[in-house]
């Protein structure tokens, strides 16, 4: 066995993988999407260049905005970078800080990040930013029941709400993988992720049409490094949600089960591959469906809710 990495290093690597890998996944999605539309597409590293460019630019703030307007992007990114400590990113065993919070803890951090971004948008007084913030809050309120029921599913299947235990349960047998509750909850979570990352069928990711915008509109008034942080935050959020879906629900394999260096390196590579595969699926969906009208989003969320509710009630039917 080669050198074992100390636990704190692995813990740090979880954060670094997310922090450095997130723009790459965004780049892969943009590239695949462009290829499917017959364009050559941006290079894979383009998101890094975009961020670097924005970081060098001048930052402006609306005259009446308070300090919070500038603090919000920083708080959001800090919240997003805390989440990788709580979920299985690289290891199948819980790291010391991994039990600091459960699935709800991760959910709270995601909600906090989105909340500060919304408050910052309200600070600006710009109609589009406010509209985006208001819509983002409205729609995240209606997706909340779905997230809750996904948590219920985890709780019913594992008697805990720890993501590590859920992943372990799924790895344990084929039977617990094909169980309807698990499959339906995974499908519902995927639909929520499409919603949360602002993808078709909920939101056009790269459009300039304000009418359909939800989260994209929130950052209209930010500029320079602050805009870079907001954009980086949404990349982080996307990567975290993909990692959550892959490592906890759909493919919790390929995680390091020891502390040895090769294992951890394989886990980093596996995570990036998994996130890119999910990204490709998302790009395919992006290219094959139309955006829903804003008021049809409730129907989309109702469908996700249906999936997860059916999943939860099947747990009770087993007579078990």
């Amino acid at each position: 066995m080669s050198a074992a990495l100390p636990i704190p290093v692995i813990q740090l690597l979880q954060v670094l993988t997310v922090a450095l890998g997130a723009p790459a996944v965004t780049g892969v999605i943009a590239r695949v999407e462009a290829r499917m539309q017959g364009r050559r597409g941006p290079r894979l590293a383009q998101p890094y260049y975009d961020l670097a460019k924005l970081l060098r630019k001048e930052a402006l703030a609306p005259r009446r905005a308070s300090l919070f307007f500038l603090a919000a992007p920083v708080i959001a990114v800090a919240a997003y970078l805390t989440i990788p400590l709580l979920i299985p990113v690289l290891t199948s065993y819980g790291l010391p800080l991994g039990y600091m919070g459960d699935i709800l803890g991760g959910g709270f951090l995601l909600a906090l990040a989105s909340f500060v971004a919304a408050v910052a948008a309200l600070e600006t007084g710009s109609p589009y930013a406010q509209l985006g913030a208001s819509r983002a809050k409205t729609f995240s309120a209606i997706t909340e029941p779905v997230v809750l029921f996904v948590t219920f599913t985890v709780a019913l299947l594992t008697s805990t709400d720890l993501p590590y235990v859920m992943a372990g349960t799924i790895r344990s047998s084929a039977g617990s993988y094909v169980r309807p509750a698990h499959l339906l909850a995974s499908a519902a979570l995927f639909m929520v992720i499409l919603h949360e990352t602002g993808r078709i069928p909920v939101e056009t990711h790269s459009g300039t049409n304000e009418f359909g915008m939800i989260e994209e509109a929130r950052s209209f008034e930010h500029s320079g490094p602050y805009l870079a942080l907001l954009k980086y935050g949404s990349m982080l959020k996307q990567f975290i949600l993909f990692a959550l879906l892959a490592d906890v629900f759909v493919v919790p394999w390929g995680l390091a089960s020891t502390q040895s260096l090769p294992d951890v390196v394989i886990a980093v590579a596996a995570l990036l591959v998994k996130a890119c595969v999910i990204g490709v699926v998302v790009a395919v969906i992006d290219n094959s469906f139309a955006k829903l009208r804003l008021f049809k989003i409730t129907e989309y969320v109702a469908a996700a809710f249906l999936l997860v509710v059916v999943g939860v009630i099947t747990v009770y039917g087993g007579g078990a």
Binding site: S173, A174, G175, V178, R179, P180, L183, L184, L306, L307, V310, G311, T314, G318, G319, A320
Partner: peptide
């Protein structure tokens, strides 16, 4: 939830098929 011989997988596959029918 498979009772009898086959442990789990068949019973679960049946459950998944039934759940999909409900979704349809």
């Amino acid at each position: 939830m498979g009772v009898g011989g086959a442990p789990g997988v068949y019973g679960d596959a049946a459950d998944v098929a039934a759940a999909l029918m409900l979704l349809l």
